[in-house]
Amino acid sequence: MNMHKYEKWWMLFGSGTLLIFLIVVGVSAFYMGSTPPYCATTLDPENVREHDSFQELGLKQLDDNEYSLTILASAFDYDVGNPEKVIEIPKGASVSIYATTTDVIHGFEIAGTNANMMLEPGYVSTNRYTFKNAGEYTLLCNEYCGVGHHLMAATIKVVE
């Protein structure tokens, strides 16, 4: 097949770029174990508060540096286990986040971090995040959920 010299160049460039992207994605997924948020657990959205996983909301220490954070979202509120809506997390903690919603779809974004997922009724959205930097973060809803959408927020304090 006759091909122009430049055509060969950009075909090589395109294939090479694709190869680099696939290697980076493959290494981060299979070697470094990074996964997107998932929602493998299902539950009855009308009886979330009766479900075993959502009896105790907020941060719970599991191991030395392992924590679980359970949050229940509803229009237009994040129930984090206390009325102040403040969660204190020690710096460097590896946190498994479990969250769901009792009504409509809500967002779950800890602004400025990779902890970002969608909460769907009937599913427990799960994500893992290590809080590397101390500071105050805002948990907010990034899926338009109704008239009080902008009021949905909670504070996460990462302390030394």
Binding site: N2, M3, H4, K5, Y6, E7, W9, W10
Partner: peptide, 11 residues
Amino acid sequence: PHEDVDLKGTL
């Protein structure tokens, strides 16, 4: 004939 085409701009 392909070789004669100027593909610099395309590149």
